[in-house]
């Protein structure tokens, strides 16, 4: 019962803060609504028994990526951005039609079909381990090569970001 209430609270808050984020005129307000949304998504991960991902969501998204956004917003001249004539609703019909069509399709499928016909047997879950331990075992054995590729992606992004931002083009 408590889990159900908590889920509906998270459902409402995530969608509301996402809509608020998209519709704010000032970018800093959007970033703050995005922070609210990230916190609630972390709550959703806790509800889904993915505690490690909840922590990572807060540390990486709320702690690193959002701070990066805020820094760059501070670096650009915010006054000029504010006086910018922003066409908020210039592409509204096209966007709403395309997003609405896709949304209607997914909702129809979800309403008609049950995704989980029969739950598969518990195979990969190691019930005696906590979530970070089990995740680490899967990550460092089965997904070791993608993990190394991910580190390479981060290295390339690091070098690329420094190169692009520092060079006078």
């Amino acid at each position: 019962m408590f889990g159900t209430l908590f889920f509906y609270y998270l459902f409402f808050m995530i969608l509301a803060s996402a809509v608020m984020m998209v519709t704010r005129k000032h970018v800093v307000h959007s970033v703050l609504y995005m922070l609210l949304m990230f916190f609630h998504i972390a709550g959703l991960y806790i509800l889904l028994e993915a505690e490690f991902l909840a922590a990572i969501q807060l540390i990486v998204y709320a702690g690193a990526i959002l701070v990066l956004y805020l820094f760059v917003i501070m670096l650009v001249n915010i006054k000029r951005v504010q006086t910018l004539r922003e066409q908020l609703f210039g592409h509204l019909p096209f966007a709403l039609v395309s997003a609405g069509l896709l949304c209607a399709g997914v909702v129809t499928v979800l309403a008609r079909e049950t995704l989980l016909k029969k739950p598969p047997e518990v195979v990969a879950r190691v019930s005696t381990l906590s979530n970070p331990e089990a995740l680490g075992q899967v990550l460092y054995t089965q997904y070791l090569f993608p993990f190394e590729v991910a580190s390479l992606i981060l290295l390339v992004a690091l070098v690329g970001a420094v190169l692009i931002a520092s060079r006078k083009i």
């Binding site: 969608l15 998209v22 908020l88 997003a99």
Partner: peptide
């Protein structure tokens, strides 16, 4: 899945609407 897809569609509509 409904929550995830609704979030995706909000993001998609925002990407198409906003010009910032």
């Amino acid at each position: 899945i409904l929550l995830g897809s609704l979030l995706f569609f909000v993001g998609m509509a925002g990407f198409l609407i906003r010009r910032n």
